[in-house]
Design a protein around this nucleic acid. Sequence first.
DNA 1: CCAAAGACTGACCGTACGGTCAGTCAGTAA
DNA 2: TTACTGACTGACCGTACGGTCAGTCTTTGG
Lengths: 222, 222
Amino acid sequence: MQARISSKAATGRSAGEAAILEAAVKLFSEKGYDTVSMRGIAEEAGVSKANIYHHFDSKEALYRSILCASASQLAGLVSELAGSAGPFEKRILDFATEHLSRLEGDALSSRVILREAFSGNDEHNKLLVDEVFGGIFERMVAIFEAGQRAGVLRNELDAALCATLLIGADVFFFQARGILRHLPQAGFASDLPRFSAQMVDVMLNGMLAGTLPAAAGQGGEG
Amino acid sequence: MQARISSKAATGRSAGEAAILEAAVKLFSEKGYDTVSMRGIAEEAGVSKANIYHHFDSKEALYRSILCASASQLAGLVSELAGSAGPFEKRILDFATEHLSRLEGDALSSRVILREAFSGNDEHNKLLVDEVFGGIFERMVAIFEAGQRAGVLRNELDAALCATLLIGADVFFFQARGILRHLPQAGFASDLPRFSAQMVDVMLNGMLAGTLPAAAGQGGEG
DNA sequence: CCAAAGACTGACCGTACGGTCAGTCAGTAA
DNA sequence: TTACTGACTGACCGTACGGTCAGTCTTTGG
């Protein structure tokens, strides 16, 4: 099997280990930690259960390995997005659109992290904040504070709250798509750019009529 | 034990059954279905495991019983909130504030439903929409459509999307509070009314400066 | 007072879990 | 050829799971 050797040379891990990781990400994204069994992962990966223990010390270690990979991926993505240039409104729209599209693109990893973040375990929460979310949130808040210094964002608003609203809208939409798809009124459930555009429109310009600035209405009629 | 008799007469169920339900709600709100064990529920309730099977056919039946109770509770709450009167802006603020405060007040039930709604199981999603969320969402959308007919809400916006944003902001905040608490910038994490007020302010009036109508700034400086 | 009914229990069953281990097999360097 | 290494496996272990059942208390209607 020449393929196995070359695949190991390329990624630093054997074909079996890669299959295990792929299977584990898939299963851990579908169900919670306890519901996923090592037997199930082994079957999905096409290897023996004992082989998993050859590559990973324990179920916990395998899970943490996946979590760390997903987390550093997320951190890299956001730091990239947060570094974009341009006027405030465009930065916000670009961030929201790209953030949501990558949540969907890496749906498996995203679900693993979200499940962990919303698990309610305070120790895990603190760890996630220290290692991942803290830095991400700081960069997000900085964007809004820059908007306030530039006089574009209302000064009486809490920048951190604004960042929470923007991220929250994306995350909630990502989480709730399975529900929204069954709601006949929510046609936007299958149209990510439409949601992003109108969501940012509302966030920036508000829902109320008769208060739009000259530059408003970006994408609302796409 | 006179207390046992009276408690059964009052609620239609024995003290043991009530203890089982209470324990089950608590545990199912903390962990997922598979992670919660019947032994754990029995211990938490202070009864034998066999006693649970005397009152409920199976683990699944116990879980469904809890889910149905939580769901009808949620449906009742939202239909009550959606029926409020007053001008559009006030209805939105009242709904958001009260909705979030009741999410927290019934945090256990809320978590059980949210976990189920975001489980990713499409059959469960469809069932939840048909039995609970469908009606709730319809009422919410109606509020926004009424706002549009009254000329208060921008006509080019999608009413269903607006409803999603409002509910999503509350739900995300409720889910993410454990994370937000660890973020030093997010002081609003422990101040529900402040979050509700400023969230609604942003939703209605937008984040951008220089576009506020006369009635704006409701609660932003509390 | 006494049977019928319902609340409740300890012991048990088969199964699936996470984890271990001795051992096989292919590739590799000496 | 030989000795070694890492990938990999089937069989096994103790434990905890959901669920069952015979039987014991406790309350209640006649």
